[in-house]
Design a protein around this nucleic acid. Structure first.
Lengths: 246, 246
DNA sequence: ACGATGCCTTGATTTCGATCAACCCTTTGG
DNA sequence: CCAAAGGGTTGATCGAAATCAAGGCATCGT
């Protein structure tokens, strides 16, 4: 499991310093976190945590992508979250992991053992406050996803997924979504299907259909060019005016 | 809008004292909340808050039931939450309500104006801690629901809904689910459909089918008797062993 | 160099739940 | 007393997505 070990040491230079659970920390609070943190890396495809496992750490994604998923005993699976840089893994006060966490791209996470972290949570209000904010944002995202899963058509689901990744991509780069933009889908067709509550065949067909209608252009299998964002947005079924405020 | 105004005054006697956002508060913290709280009531069917409205208060459900829902412009709607006694409405740090909140039974809520509450959140860590806990629980519930919406069949959805209401009902009364138990569905067939991502006809058919197979017994339209809980659980598609740990 | 594997696409067919439609029962109100 | 409205059930038909099936195109390891 050798990796191109990126040398990460100083929180001050951390790429997620201002978005992760530590975002609101002052210098002295950050020192406390710095003293107990440690890094881990996983390669694409590896399962980081199995549902039912005992969890003795929590973590922030520093680089890479992971998914949160549930599986029924007959194999049906549903992704319930997409973890990107700055997202938080684990839950203070919970022993057992409720979901599988799988790296879909090589990933590096910044870990804290659970006990010390829980102690900090009590003594360092800025961490708890930020965690609350992040949990509420995730709750909003989960609820937006419930509408998608419960009521959208296959075509709307695909358009929504591309639009959401495009939007989130854009805000990571702090660039406003312009006329023409380009998105890397970090997921296989099967992973998309598991995220959208579809089969991989339906995902493939709908992507082909959007391509045929020139709403998206494929560069290879994973890269999507969106020549006309508003046109794509029309296919999502969402309110045209600004869309959901998440 | 006259109501059988239940006289609620003292937090100490409040039915949700130990489950709501105030659960962890000490006496002195409770006094602060008590001094700024006020009650509101709504009758069944009333919309309490419209998506897009400015929200200048947050609240806890004291008695009754409400739903959280999203609607697409063509009328498709998806419920994204069911609010029962002790559940929290609103989000500190958010101006605009993202969902409709509708009373499905007569409801009384304990309100706090947003600003004073946000101040307490900073000065009174026990409130923030409890709110974090509740947000994480809701996140778990939302994710369990995502699996249901994305991957379960109509029959499994209905069985899951009944099982979840039964379980939650039982834990409100602190009685372990025994052999034979009885559940009041607080929802119309249409509301169930909006919760489960189905049509009301499908809901009706699946309930009839479970009835025909003696897995449930109806007393009137809204009351369900479950003669054999494990048998019902088998129909939910969930892991038999204990089920989801929420 | 080659077969194996993983990922993707496309076609044919089936199926589950949506849709369209009729009707029942209860409550409500003039 | 009756009409209207709201909620529920059931039947017939339709259609979107699932399922079953075949094949394409890279990459990989030997």
């Amino acid at each position: 499991m050798r990796h191109s070990e990126v040398e990460l040491k100083e929180c001050a230079e951390c790429p997620i310093r201002h978005r992760a659970v530590c975002a609101r920390c002052e210098e002295d609070e950050l020192d406390l976190l710095e003293s107990i943190k440690y890094y881990r890396s996983y390669s694409a495809g590896q399962t980081m945590i199995w549902a039912g496992d005992r969890m003795d750490f929590v973590a922030s994604v520093v680089t890479g992508v992971a998914t949160l998923s549930q599986t029924m005993e007959d194999g049906r699976t549903q992704m319930v979250g997409l973890l990107l840089p700055s997202d938080f893994i684990g839950r203070p006060g919970r022993e057992i992991a409720p979901y599988n966490v799988t790296a879909v791209a090589d990933i590096t996470v910044c870990c804290f053992r659970k006990r010390p972290f829980e102690n900090l949570l009590v003594t360092t209000p800025h961490i708890g406050q930020r965690l609350l904010e992040m949990a509420l944002d995730e709750l909003d995202a989960a609820r937006e996803w419930m509408l998608l899963l419960g009521r959208k058509t296959a075509r709307e689901k695909i358009a929504s997924l591309i639009a959401i990744i495009a939007r989130r991509d854009a805000e990571l780069k702090d660039s406003l979504p312009e006329g023409r933009l380009c998105v890397d889908l970090p997921l296989t067709r099967e992973a998309m299907a598991d995220y959208l509550g579809l089969t991989l065949e339906t995902v493939s067909r709908q992507i082909s259909s959007l391509k045929r209608e020139k709403i998206i252009v494929l560069e290879g299998k994973r890269r999507v060019v969106i020549p006309n964002l508003p046109l794509l947005m029309e296919q999502t079924g969402d309110d045209s005016d600004g869309g959901p405020l998440v």
